[in-house]
Amino acid sequence: MDEKRIRVLVAKPGLDGHDRGAKVVARALRDAGMEVIYTGLRQTPEMIVEAALQEDVDVVGLSILSGAHMALVPRILELLSNQGLENVRVFLGGIIPEEDVPLLKQMGVVEVFGPGANTQTIAQVIRHVGHSPEAS
């Protein structure tokens, strides 16, 4: 019998031009035994939430380098909750100024990982919340 696998959507909202960081994280989560759905560059919040719904993921990881996080993240959280997906845990990575982090966490982002974050730490944190009872 198969055990339950943690399913993670790794997405890049907005107009960023490169996705190396997102790929590094996708690969690290794969090596940590998770199923990672990778959707590529330039996703709208609507596309991301639709993919999260169809793929029934436990976790969404967003990578934003453009500085548009204070617009994109609340929109994605709102759409998730409109779809009844408020149990999906949202992580953020990329270039996020220190002062925005508390605000983002207040909105519901579980954790923000900046440049140089250790991929094993990321995997550990995601595994922890992916298996916690709130995430179904």
Binding site: R5, A26, R27, L29, R30, D31, A32, G33, M34, E35, V36, I37, Y38, T39, G40, Q43, T44, E46, M47, E50, A51
Partner: peptide, 15 residues
């Protein structure tokens, strides 16, 4: 684990 990347090519179908 797995990286499932087929959706990248199917973005036209979103929405």
């Amino acid at each position: 684990g797995a990286v499932l990347g087929d959706r990248i090519r199917m973005r036209d179908l979103a929405g």
